[in-house]
Design a protein around this nucleic acid. Structure first.
Length: 845
RNA sequence: GCGGGCGUGGUGGAACUGGUAGACGCGCCAGACUCAAAAUCUGGUUCCGCAAGGAGUGUCGGUUCGAUUCCGACCGCCCGCACCA
């Protein structure tokens, strides 16, 4: 008997799979297809436990589908553009390209050590010119299709990363990477017209029934659809002012009109009026963080301009500049109805504006109904509203809109919160935007024959700003249209563009076209996508947009990239602090007698809460260190055990050694299995312990299959433990073989190397990865008899072993004679006996 | 504030459409093997109680023959969004 040598075995099987091309996917097959994808990593240089968890889950599914007879696509690539490479270049003088490819090589090696069933022949990095040149083609095609435009806009500027950011990349007013408060700047930038699909991106969410509800809700809120009315006020200065409202029913309760401090009208007034300029300045100082908004006072400035009420030419409303009106939503201007909107009410109370209720809740008298500090936003009947009087809210909305439309003042509108996606980045390590600016022709796309617009190799990072701008030759080109002197766009694409279509490229990564429509038609959509919840909006929304763009251009026939989405939890670990409050790494700490000490000393260490593994808290465990000691199967098993995959998992040494012990236990079970039948023999009719084992085997097959189908890895693991525990000596050799083979196959997706070794040990000449998934025999997954509980008044008083299909009367009779039942009844006659067949008996006394 | 989720032993967590709460793992305890240790194996492990029995899934209430599961209120924790007109 020999211990299982994970190191040797894992290397050996990885070599076998690789040399046979086991996981190379074919684009033509009679089998049903399964596209399993995990979010591809940024090549930081080392894999972390989060990657291990993510890729293990995807791998289990890919291997499971393969065994089930699917043609599986399970590729891997690298999200390889981005700032860390530039930072490395600036700090250590390395070339960002070389730095990135060295990291990729290191991480590829680590991923391969995990034994992932990946088709490495399809691997690419987004910084490969072969990839980004295709992206440039797409950019030009999107441009020609009207999905890309350049516009001047108020944009978010990250002062640390020295670039603009998309709205989605600003979290609590701060840059998503740098954490620096973003500044507003007016700049001319490139946009993707994601709003072209606002309505579709929203309504299609309902069909994504294999997405987490949470992600769908977040996207719904981000897109933010609201129905209402857009109309124009006539202003006393002769201009018109557009406003958007969802409450046109409350127009007769209006007491002011307010515009955003960033509204063009406010800017225009500021030019000639210092007080307006000072007020706008003051609004900008308040900040946009959530805390600032929470406590911010409503600020207003009366412009002296008045607006004419749309239903009454003699009614004039003051036009105010108000800090709570956002330029980024609707038209940046509103009418204020204090009685029925809390913000308007707070504002009106501060500036002594009238508060006139026009929606009266049921049971209240319009003459006496009063709105104090809380605006009334509920249902009711209209009052004080002339032609709307007596209508309920919805009818009044319609009536008001109809009147406005008939007067030609406005239209019924659906307004979205979603803005177009700003994709220009003032960074050099990204996909160059393939546009050329000519003084005569304006912006002209680079010719397809001139693609790729390659990045120069000699980028200099010493000085601030974008090195593509300061590069001596790179940007100087001739205009593709007139041939005159022109300049390249020096901005690059947001790296989220790179990840918005990579899944489509995987279907044929060598294609001359961005996407091979035939390959995409075969493989897309991705059947199961797995990754972190942090991409709930950003990446997943952009990918949904891009897929619609690809559809529009004829590259695919689907709109949704991912039919199944799973968001896995994070990997956590205890934190440790020394006596000076400094963070300590797990290797600096040892535990004795339930107490933590600084390793090799008696200095006590404070054990803190379990947190997401991070460099800053030093609670990181390097996956490779675990693979070195225990092997890949152990770390994979750990990631799948105990904790449901969507929740955060805590890494513990005890858990890891427990997994390792189980690896050894399985190996011993097989290696020391004693007498077995020859491979391929089926068990005959057996009984007693052998039959029990067969039942346990088939129950496990059924349960594990169902659990893997539903990504309930932790339950599948528990089922496998149960089966392992049920395997005993002294049974029929064929029944035992059946159990051991099932155990091996069921372990296969999760611990593929161990399973392959076991399969070999069981005498098979073929590979386990080529073995089909077993089918549970329904006759064996149910026992002939069941043990049911017997309750008296809902309290358990005994149990009864009955044959399946026993009639209720005999079950009742048997139940009434149980000792515990007789005692509990104390001689009283039962009032009622409820028998739920094969489940429970409850006696009501 | 709005939206979503969660609360079960020492611990991670099981429990199908309401039907014997605590599967399985970790930890712990005891025993076997061993000169000893490691490894392994066997048994035990919700709490109170010697036992019979009692209590028990955040709290309080409801529906039900029966509630971790359904309903209401409350408490606590987590996540997302946030002056969205």
């Amino acid at each position: 008997m020999a211990r299982y040598n994970a190191k040797e075995s894992e290397k050996r099987w990885q070599d076998v799979w690789s040399s046979r091309g086991t996981f190379v996917a074919s684009n033509t097959s009679d089998k049903p297809k399964a596209y399993v994808l995990e979010m591809f990593p940024y090549p930081s240089g080392r894999i972390h436990m989060g990657h291990v968890r993510n890729y293990t889950m995807g791998d289990v599914l890919a291997r499971f589908r393969r065994a089930q007879g699917f043609n599986v696509l399970h590729p891997m690539g690298w999200d390889a553009f981005g700032l860390p490479a530039e930072n490395a270049a600036r700090d250590s003088g390395v070339n960002p390209r070389e730095w990135t490819y060295a990291n990729i090589a290191a991480m590829r090696r680590e991923l391969q050590m995990m034994g992932l069933a990946i088709d490495w022949s399809r691997e690419f990095a987004t910084c490969d010119p072969e990839y980004y040149s295709q992206q440039q083609k797409l950019f030009v095609e999107f441009f020609k299709a009207g999905l890309v435009y350049r516009a001047e806009a108020d944009v978010n500027w990250d002062p640390i990363d020295q670039t603009v950011l998309a709205n989605e990349q600003v979290i609590d007013g701060k840059g998503w990477r740098s954490g620096a408060p973003v500044e507003r700047k007016k700049l001319s930038q490139w946009f993707f017209k994601i709003t072209e699909f606002s309505d579709d991106l929203l309504s299609a969410l309902d069909q994504l029934d294999r997405w987490p509800e949470k992600v769908r809700t977040m996207q719904k809120n981000w897109i933010g659809r609201s129905e209402g009315l857009r109309f124009a006020f006539d202003l006393s200065n002769g201009e018109k002012l557009d406003v958007f409202t969802t409450r046109p029913d409350t127009l007769f309760g209006a007491s002011f009109v307010a515009i955003s401090p960033d509204h063009p009208l406010a800017s225009a007034l500021a030019k000639s009026d210092l007080k307006v300029a000072a007020f706008i300045e003051e609004c900008h100082r308040t900040g946009t963080s959530e805390a600032a908004i929470e406590t911010a006072e409503k600020l207003g400035y009366d412009t002296g301009i008045t607006a004419t009420h749309p239903f009454d030419p003699s009614w004039k409303l003051p036009v105010m500049i108000a800090n709570f009106v956002l330029m980024g939503y609707g038209t940046g201007a509103i009418f204020g109805c204090p009685a029925h909107d809390q913000r308007d009410l707070d504002f009106a109370n501060k500036y002594k504006l009238p508060v006139l209720p026009v929606v009266i809740p049921e049971g209240e008298d319009p003459k006496t109904f009063h709105v104090g500090k809380a605006a009334y936003v509920g249902p009711g009947k209209l009052a004080n509203s002339r032609f709307l009087d007596g209508l309920d809210v919805d009818a009044a909305k319609n009536a008001a809109i109809t009147r406005i439309e008939n007067d030609g003042r406005g239209t019924r509108t659906v307004n979205y919160r979603l803005r177009d996606w700003l994709v220009s980045r003032q960074r050099p390590w990204g996909c160059p935007i393939p546009m050329i600016r000519c003084a005569k022709c304006g912006y002209v796309p680079a010719k397809e024959s001139d693609l790729p617009v390659k990045l120069p190799d000699d980028l200099k990072f010493e000085s601030a700003g974008n090195p593509l701008v300061s590069h001596p030759t790179w940007k100087h080109v001739d205009c593709p249209q007139c041939g005159g002197k022109a300049e390249r766009e020096t901005d690059t694409c947001d790296t989220f563009v790179d990840s918005s279509w990579y899944f489509a490229r995987f279907t044929d990564p060598k294609s001359e076209k961005p996407v091979n429509a035939k390959a995409a038609a075969y493989w897309l959509p991705v059947d199961q996508y797995i990754g972190g919840i942090e991409h709930a909006i950003l990446h997943l929304l952009y990918a949904r947009f891009f897929t619609r763009g690809l559809h529009k251009l004829g590259y695919t026939n689907v709109d949704e990239p991912f039919t199944g989405l799973f968001t896995q939890g994070m990997v956590c670990h205890e934190t440790y602090k020394g006596h000076n409050g400094e963070w300590l790494t797990p290797d600096e700490v040892e535990k004795r007698d339930g107490q933590a000490y600084l390793k090799g000393t008696n200095v006590k260490v404070t054990v803190g809460s379990s947190e997401k593994m991070s460099k800053s808290k030093k609670n990181v465990i390097a996956p490779e260190s675990i693979i070195d000691v225990y092997g890949a199967d152990t770390i994979r098993w750990f990631m799948l055990s105990d904790t449901p995959p969507e929740r955060d998992i805590e890494w513990t040494d005890e858990g890891a050694s427990g997994c390792w012990r189980f690896v050894q236990r399985i190996w011993r079970l097989i290696d020391e299995s004693g007498e077995l039948s020859a491979p391929g023999t089926k068990p005959g009719n057996v009984e007693g312990a052998s039959l029990e084992l067969r039942r346990a085997t088939h129950k496990a097959i059924a349960a594990v299959t169902n659990d893997l189908e539903n990504l309930r890895f932790n339950r599948a693991v528990a089922q496998i433990y149960t089966l392992a525990g049920a395997i005993t000596d002294g049974v029929d050799p064929a029944a035992k073989r059946e159990a051991l083979e099932a155990l091996t196959i069921l372990c296969g997706p999760m611990m593929p190397h161990l399973a392959e070794s076991c399969w070999e040990c069981l005498g098979h000449k073929t590979l386990l990865v080529d073995a089909p998934w077993p089918k549970a025999d329904p006759a064996l997954t149910r026992s002939d008899s069941v043990t049911i509980g017997v309750q008296v008044n809902g309290k358990l008083r005994g149990s009864l072993e009955i044959a399946r299909g026993s009639d209720n009367k005999s079950v009742e009779t048997a139940a009434l004679t149980l000792d515990g039942v007789v005692r509990a009844l104390e001689g009283k006659a039962p009032k009622r006996v409820i028998v739920v067949p094969e489940r429970i008996v409850n006696i009501v006394a």
